Computed example of a mutant assay.
Amino acid sequence: MLIETRPALDPELAALITAQQRELAVAGAGAGARIFEPHDDVAYLVGVVNGRGVACGGWQARDAGVAEITRMFVRPAHRGRGLGRQMIVALEEEALAAGRQVIRLETGAHMLAVIALYQSSGYARIPAFGDPRNLCFEKTLPALVQ
């Protein structure tokens, strides 16, 4: 998978996030899910396979040294191939390069495969920092050697 930086208003990114929101709505999270509004302060990445965007994610600076991963999504036909893990690593690397060593994220409690991915990627549960119905996770990355 080729991972590319995309602007907030990229049409392929918008299509991926629309698909993510539809999936959340079908899974019953529609009422609590945040509506996508593109933000210039989020660094978005799109994973491309055979010229088509199949995965996305973004990271946003939060507190000093902290980034939040947001909008993680892999199209269903491309799941189970390690693309989500590749996206997490790319987002972590970008956030770390920007001085964000602590990475946080949140997801719905019903998203069992996503929770398993985050936990197997080294994220540990923390108290809720967003929607109290969601589960929150955090990981501290090793510092970059300069």
Rank of each mutant, 00 (worst) to 15 (best):
A61Q: 12
A33P: 07
R34P: 00
L45S: 13
N50Y: 05
A55C: 14
E23K: 04
A29T: 02
V42M: 05
R52G: 02
G51N: 09
A25K: 09
V46N: 04
W59S: 05
A61P: 00
Y44S: 01
G58N: 07
A27T: 01
V48E: 05
A55L: 13
E68D: 14
A43L: 15
V66C: 09
V42L: 09
G47Q: 05
A55I: 11
Q60V: 13
A64P: 02
V26K: 10
V54E: 02
G51S: 03
G58T: 05
D41M: 02
T70I: 12
V66Q: 07
N50I: 03
G57F: 12
W59N: 06
H39W: 00
H39E: 15
A33W: 09
L24R: 04
G51P: 10
D63C: 01
C56S: 15
G53M: 06
V26D: 06
C56P: 07
F36E: 08
Y44M: 04
A27C: 09
H39V: 00
A31V: 15
L45V: 11
G53K: 02
A27N: 11
G58Y: 01
R71D: 01
V49Q: 10
V54S: 00
I69V: 15
E23N: 04
L45Y: 14
G47L: 08
E68Y: 08
Y44P: 06
W59C: 07
G47Y: 02
G65L: 13
G57V: 10
A67R: 09
V26A: 10
D63R: 10
G28V: 14
A61C: 10
D40Y: 05
A31Y: 07
I69T: 13
V26S: 04
L45D: 04
R34K: 13
R62D: 10
E23A: 08
A61H: 11
G57W: 09
A31Q: 15
H39Y: 01
A31R: 14
G32Y: 13
Q60C: 11
G57T: 12
R62V: 03
G58E: 00
N50A: 15
G58L: 04
F36N: 01
L24A: 07
P38W: 08
G32W: 08
D41H: 14
Y44A: 07
A43I: 10
R62I: 00
V49F: 04
V48M: 12
G57Q: 06
R52H: 11
V46Q: 07
T70W: 00
G32P: 00
I69W: 05
E23G: 02
